[in-house]
Design a protein around this nucleic acid. Structure first.
Lengths: 134, 134
DNA sequence: GTGGCTACTTACCGATGGAGAGTGACCAGG
DNA sequence: CCTGGTCACTCTCCATCGGTAAGTAGCCAC
């Protein structure tokens, strides 16, 4: 259940349905397109360098990958390790906290893969009906 | 460009790590801030009217709520029922397909609530270190 | 001394999201 | 008869966000 190591007693309960609640913010972050994919990739294959990650997430811009990784690092979900070499060498991997997100994220990713066909069908049907209405 | 309309052929397996894959798109949609909250709310409390939904999701703009609901309806996750009355009366509820998303989404929402404190702490630590570096 | 490697950073620009006012249909009150 | 209120939008304006592409830094091979 709850972690036994809370430094201080947290608020009775955070609620993402409340305006301005940090949990809503966090939910938004971890659910964002690139964050889901980065975390998924690091979860599946372990530590990874910047360029490799960029290749695996076909289509990310360098800017967004950097930005996503920074946010994830700041949130304590990803650890960034710099090896002072030339050319630069940086590795990213999940922290223990990041590991705890693997389950929920995998469930979401799997859902989207498994139900894509149904959704695509629903869209077609919707669009056909919309055309008829228009 | 390639036509995206003959998607009836179910690919061997969709992969969100592939550029332009519909599953990546879908993952993005269902993970978006307002979609998560709308689906969560409809999952918890059942059918709901527009205005009520707007109150529960403290902070949504009407525009975004409308847009989110339309997308969800088009994707076959939410059913929209209009009662031809005055003043207008519209109800939204999860479809069976939408119901299958409850689990994954609840897991994600719960994670964010349960780990907000750790993340907040990590952010503080990161910011302190960053200040020292700067 | 030019190019290449790696991991960024910066500048620019179109797309997206939020705030807030307007719309249409109808009815109750004055 | 005219105003105000209800509900579910819809439209407009502006700020922020995401994508594209070019630039940066340090060192090495050619």
């Amino acid at each position: 259940m709850a972690t036994a190591e809370n430094v201080t007693e947290p608020m009775a309960s955070w609620d993402p349905y409340t305006r301005g609640c940090p949990s809503r913010d966090l939910l938004d972050q971890i659910g964002s397109k690139w964050a889901v994919l980065v975390l998924g990739e690091l979860g599946k294959h372990g530590a990874c360098r910047f360029t490799r990650l960029r290749q695996r997430l076909a289509g990310v811009s360098e800017k967004m990958l950097t930005q996503t990784l920074r946010t994830l690092e700041r949130d304590g979900l990803v650890r960034r390790t710099v090896y002072p070499e030339v050319p630069p060498h940086v590795e990213y991997e999940l922290t223990p906290l990041g590991q705890t997100l693997r389950g929920p994220l995998r469930a979401l990713t799997q859902w989207s893969v498994e139900h894509v066909d149904e959704v695509l069908a629903a869209r077609q049907e919707y669009d056909v009906r919309a055309e008829g209405t228009a």
